[in-house]
Every structure is written in structure tokens, then in C-alpha cells.
Design a protein around this nucleic acid. Structure first.
Lengths: 218, 218
DNA sequence: GCTCTAATTATGCAAGCGTATAAATACTCG
DNA sequence: CGAGTATTTATACGCTTGCATAATTAGAGC
């Protein structure tokens, strides 16, 4: 009987970009399913169908992999929201409407995204680099929102001075974030589209305009 | 030369309640400073000036200590908000006003609270027990808010049917949570009281009433 | 096809983790 | 003041973790 020499794992060489993406994707899976604590190098490697040592070949330290994963999540959500914008009509009110509903529906409003986001946010306080990464993302989001708000106000023939639009951006950003939170945490107690509807109504009230593409005036 | 026998740590016996509180407080310190990962039994014990073994005497498992700590944070914030209510006048609009500003000011709107909250929220998805604990807290908060809203609407002679007040509660809860988040994450880029002001304005717009105690009508 | 190298696997290590358990001690009660 | 017990310390065990490093191999280039 032949002695079973432990067979060495066969493998394929992959491009650097592909591997990094795979590793980040595997990391996100782990975090989503079992929290940040579940994202160990061994588990990540398993999901990426790779051995643990390889991770260090692409990411000098585990923290860097985690940071890259965080940026990937935020970027993914941003891109998804922007996609909704590019598919929207060019009426500014319709664009704001599309932006809001996109952020308050699938796939952005998802428990997995919340788990990821929360796990990272918990680190923000301790890690200055991550704190800066987060602030940039936040301000970027708010600025994008502020532009949409200003144009929607102008389209409705309302004043849109920057001190007003800034404050509106803060408030409306809060509405989106808050409803996103509620939906991620307890989406099952809300009807489909209810939160998006609620958000639109609240935003219309704050801005004092209708976001219906057709018509414009209520 | 006398051999230095390792001196056994001296200690005092404490009441069960005192010890539990101390351990929870030490846990919160750890989580706030270095995230959930920093909350190890040894570090917690160190802060509570106790040896690690004692933790298990009061909490069968570390997870139970973490859970207790989470409930303590939420409870603390709830109590602080309720305190603001009991110090408020009995005009319903003033009470809602006080409730909102309390939640959007010190000591509730604090980075430490966010770190704690986020660290725990990241576990909600993975741990059913914590998921239930969270949902209870959330619904409790929203119900309290809904009562305040209904009474404020009635005081302003506005209709307050339950299907409306529920939706308002969802939206206003989002405004509070969202602004709380913004303040915790980047409080330094906002002027003192700015977020509370913004929140009040947004809520007044959503409800269509003024929350100024004096007058009532704008 | 051979060679060379970069990508990948395999193995090991030291540190830190949560938990278990036995020994010691501060307080309570008679 | 002495005995008993609940509280606390001390020690150790088994596991997992992130990281390092040596051994291997797939694939590109000549």
C-alpha cells in the first residue's frame, strides 16, 4: 500500500488585482456573517481558497486588509447610489428622489452592510487613519447631497443660499442615515418601500418642495 | 537575603451589585478606548482592580458580561433622555423639544457612546440574543417618541391618528439618530447646539408645527 | 523545452485569549 | 474569639490568533 504523502495544494497564479479583490471579498463575507471577530486570516484565506500565508504577501498586515475592505464597502455603496443617479432623468427633483430611494432600498439598505459599517465605525475612535478615511467619505457624501439639494431647490424656484443648503444637507443626510439604520436593523417590520416613502415625505417637508418629477408644484 | 515570596494581592469583599457595576464600567472603558477587541477579561479585570477569575464568578461567560454592558449603555442613554423630560415644563411641545435637544447634546451625543453602540451593533447580526435586546431598546425608544409626538400634535390642534404618528415617529427617530451619528463622529465641525437646532427645525417641518413652548403657533 | 522568478503553500512560533479549578482569605454569625 | 462560608486570588490548560520563514511550484520569457 502506497504511503499517502500529504498532497500539496494545487494552485493557479492570479493577477495581483484579482487576488486583492478576492481577498477583500472574502473578508467582507466573514465580517458580514460573524462580525469583525470572525474575520481571521485563516477564515479569510479559506473563503478565498488560498492559504493563510498568501494574505501577508498582498497585505503587510491584517489591519491593512481590514482597512482596504472598509474602503471597498463605502466605495461600493457610493457607486451604487451614483448609478441610480445616472439612470435618473435630468429633472433635479427626480434626481434627488432617485438618490434617496436608492440609499433606502436594496442593495444598499442591507444588514450585511450595517454589520460591516458598524464594525469599522467602532474602530474609528481608536485608529486615526481610519478616522480620516471615514470623515472623507462622510463629507463626500454630504457634499454630493448638497449639490442635489441646491439644484432641486432652484428647480422649484426656491432660494438656495449656501448657508441654507448646508443645513439642509446636514438634516437630510441625517434622515437618510437614520432610516438606513432602521431598515438595516429591523427591515422586516417595515413594508417594502415604506422607509423610502417615509424619507421622501420627510425630505419634502424639510425642503418645502415636492420631489415628484411630473408637475413639480404639489 | 530573604526570599521574596510573591505577595498575594490583598482585597476587599464587595457587595454583589457594586462588583457587577464596577465590572460593567471597566468593560465600557475598554470598549470605548480600544474597541470590542480591547475588552479582554484580563484588561477588564485590571481596570476593575480585580483578578480575571473573578469575572466568571459574576458572569458565567464573557458574552454575558458584554451583553450586560450593552444594556447598561442603552439604559444610561435612555435614562438621561428621560431626565430631560422630567425637568421640562408640561407643555407637550416643550417636552418634545427637550427630548430632542437632550438626545442631541452632551452627554448623550458623545464619541464614546458611539464607539460603544457601534461595537455592539456589529454583533447584532451574528448574535440572536443581542438582536432581541437591541430591537426591544429600539422599539421602546420609538414608542416613547410616538407618545411625545401625538401629544405635541394634539396641543397644536393637529390631527394625530395612529397611522400618522407612527410614520412620524419613524421619520423623527431617523432624524435624531442620524444627527446623533453626525455629532458623535464629527462633533468638532459643528457649532455648539447647531445639530440640536437643525434637528428641531427639521422636526417642526415634518410635523408642521412649532415646538416653541411660548406661543405655540409660529 | 529550460530557466528563472514571483506567487503560493506549508510549517512553526510566541503571545494572548477565554475558561476551569484549586488554594487562600476576608468577613459573618454565633 | 473562633468556625464556616462566600468571595477572591492564583495558576494552568487548551485553543486560536497574527506573523514569520522556508520549501515548493506555476507560468513567463528566451
Amino acid at each position: 500500500m502506497k504511503i499517502q504523502a500529504a498532497p500539496r495544494k494545487s494552485f493557479r497564479r492570479e493577477g495581483e488585482d484579482k487576488r486583492r479583490e478576492d481577498l477583500i471579498a472574502a473578508t467582507l463575507e466573514c465580517v458580514a456573517e460573524r462580525g469583525l471577530a470572525g474575520a481571521t486570516v485563516r477564515e479569510i484565506a479559506l473563503r478565498a481558497d488560498v492559504t493563510a500565508g498568501l494574505i501577508r504577501y498582498y497585505f503587510p498586515t491584517k489591519d491593512e486588509l481590514i482597512g482596504a475592505a472598509y474602503r471597498a464597502v463605502m466605495n461600493r455603496m457610493t457607486v451604487q447610489a451614483s448609478d441610480a443617479l445616472s439612470n435618473a432623468s435630468d429633472d433635479p427633483r427626480a434626481r434627488l428622489y432617485a438618490f434617496v430611494t436608492a440609499n433606502l432600498g436594496q442593495p444598499i439598505m442591507d444588514p450585511h452592510n450595517l454589520s460591516l459599517w458598524a464594525g469599522f465605525i467602532a474602530l474609528v475612535h481608536a485608529d486615526p487613519a481610519m478616522a480620516m478615511a471615514h470623515r472623507d467619505g462622510y463629507l463626500g457624501f454630504r457634499d454630493e447631497l448638497e449639490v442635489l439639494i441646491r439644484e432641486a431647490l432652484l428647480a422649484a424656484a426656491k432660494p438656495a443660499e449656501s448657508n441654507h443648503t448646508r443645513r439642509h444637507a446636514v438634516a437630510i443626510n441625517a434622515i437618510i442615515d437614520g432610516l438606513w439604520l432602521e431598515g438595516c436593523l429591523a427591515g422586516d417590520i417595515f413594508a417594502d418601500g415604506e422607509l423610502a416613502e417615509t424619507g421622501i415625505a420627510a425630505i419634502e417637508a424639510v425642503l418645502g418642495i415636492s420631489l415628484n418629477a411630473e408637475g413639480g408644484a404639489k
